[in-house]
Design a protein around this nucleic acid. Structure first.
Lengths: 228, 228
DNA sequence: TGGGGGCAATGATATAAATCATATTCCTGG
DNA sequence: CCAGGAATATGATTTATATCATTGCCCCCA
C-alpha cells in the first residue's frame, strides 16, 4: 500500500517520522469510507481513534436539547480530527459527520500515543495543531457573537474561502446547503436563503452546486466588517 | 517566600514537581498586581509569559473593528492562561484584562518550557488543560449560537456558577457588570439589564454588588434549555 | 465634600430576523 | 424513469431585540 504510506508521509505531522516507524504506522492505519450523512463517531463516544481525512469533508456537529444542530467546524482533506483522543482521554465533545462521500484514515490511539511519546517532532506538531484549533475557536466565537446575520455569514464565507485551498481564497470548494450555513452561523434556513440570494443578486458571490465563489471579497469584507 | 512556593505546589499542574525544580520555579515566578481594567497582555503580543491567577479574576477579551468588546472567557483564581506561549509560540489571540484588583504570577516561557520538556507529568497536565479549554470553547460556542438572548444569559450564568467554586454551584462570586454580561453573550447592555431585571423580579436570581445568586437553578435551566 | 463619570433602569420606536405558510425545483434511490 | 423527500425560494406576519433617549444613583477621587 505505497499510496497510503505516501499520503501519511505528506502530512506535516508525520513528515519527520523515520521510515520504519512510518511503515508500521501505515500498516496500522485503517481506511474507511462513509456516505453522506453517516457518522464517523458520536459525541460522548470513547475517543479511541485519531482520524485523518483522505477525501471529502467532515463536519463536527453538536445537537441542542431541542434537536437544533450546531456545526462547530468543517474539516478539509488532510485535516486531522479527534486528536484529543491521544492527548487527553475524555469523550469526544462533538459528533463527526460525513459531508458527501468521504475516505477517512483511522489510527487507534494506542498506536499513535507511543509515537507521540517517543517522537518529539510529532508531539510538537500535534500540540501546534491543537493551538491552531484553539485559535480557530476564538475566531469562530467572534463570528458567532456578531449580531447581524449578514455579517456572520460574510465572516464565515471569507474564513472558509481562506481555509479551502483555492486560487487566492475566493472559492469555497464545498457543497454546503443553506441549512449547513444556517447551522454554522446560528440562524434559520429562511434567513440564510434570503441573505445568500441577496448577496448573489448583488454580484458579491456566486453559488453553484459544487461550491461558492466569492466574486467581490472586498464588498463581502465590508458587509462582514462595517457597522452599516 | 514560602507562601508562593506553597501556592505553586497547590496547583495541579505543578503538584508532581520534584522539590528542587519547584524551588527554582518559585524563584523565577514573578508576582504582579493589577488594578481594575489594566491589561496583563494584549492581543498580538509576543507570548512570553504563562500566567497564573493568585487573586481576583481576569477576562480574555477581543475587540472587533467597530470597537465592540467580546469576552471570550473569565478566569478564576488558580487558573492558568497564556499557556499557548509555551506550547506553540504564536502571538496571543486575545488580550487579558484584570477585573478588579488581581495578583498574577508570571513565568517566563523559557523557564517552564524546559520543565515541560523534561517532566512528562507537567506536560500531560498542560495538555489536559488545553483539552479542557477546547471543551470550554465548544460549550461557549453552544451558548453563542443560541438565538434567544434570555437562553444565552441563562446558559452562561449556570456555566459560571459551576465554574466559580461555591456551595452547590448556585453562587457566582464575581463582580460582573451588565456590560460584561452583554459582551459575554453578544447582546446590548439594555437588553441584558431588562432580562436580568426580569429574572430577578421573578425570583430566579438575586444580583448584588458582590455577585449573583441563582435562587432557582431549575427554573433558570428551563429558561436556558426550552424552546418557550 | 462635591461633582462627575460609570452603571443601572426604563420608555418609545425602529427593524432585523424568527415564524408560519406554500410553491417549485432538484436530486436520488428504488 | 418515476416518486417523493430534501433543498431552494418567496410572501405575510409576528416578535425579539437593537437603537435612541432620558433619568437617577452611587461611588470614587480631586
Amino acid at each position: 500500500m505505497i499510496v497510503k504510506r505516501d499520503f501519511l508521509k505528506s502530512l506535516p505531522i508525520f513528515s519527520a517520522l523515520p521510515d520504519p516507524i512510518l511503515d508500521k504506522l501505515t500498516d496500522r492505519a485503517e481506511e474507511f469510507t462513509y456516505k453522506n450523512g453517516e457518522y464517523i463517531f458520536y459525541e460522548g463516544d470513547p475517543p479511541d481513534w485519531l482520524c485523518i481525512i483522505r477525501e471529502g469533508n467532515v463536519k463536527a456537529v453538536k445537537y441542542l436539547e431541542d434537536g437544533k444542530e450546531i456545526i462547530l467546524h468543517v474539516f478539509m482533506p488532510g485535516d486531522i480530527f479527534g486528536e484529543l483522543a491521544i492527548l487527553d482521554r475524555r469523550p469526544y465533545p462533538a459528533s463527526a459527520q460525513s459531508m458527501g462521500h468521504t475516505k477517512i484514515l483511522k489510527l487507534h490511539y494506542t498506536h499513535c500515543r507511543d509515537i507521540c511519546e517517543n517522537v518529539p517532532e510529532v508531539r510538537m506538531k500535534l500540540i501546534q495543531s491543537m493551538g491552531e484549533k484553539q485559535r480557530g475557536f476564538v475566531d469562530r466565537l467572534e463570528t458567532a457573537m456578531t449580531t447581524r446575520v449578514e455579517k456572520r455569514i460574510a465572516h464565515m464565507l471569507l474564513k472558509l474561502a481562506g481555509a479551502s485551498d483555492s486560487k487566492g481564497g475566493t472559492y469555497i470548494n464545498l457543497h454546503l446547503t443553506r441549512k449547513d450555513i444556517a447551522n454554522m452561523v446560528g440562524t434559520t434556513i429562511e434567513t440564510t436563503i434570503r441573505i445568500m440570494s441577496r448577496l448573489q443578486k448583488e454580484g458579491i458571490i456566486e453559488s453553484t452546486k459544487t461550491g461558492i465563489t466569492i466574486l467581490r471579497p472586498d464588498l463581502l469584507r465590508e458587509r462582514g466588517g462595517e457597522h452599516e
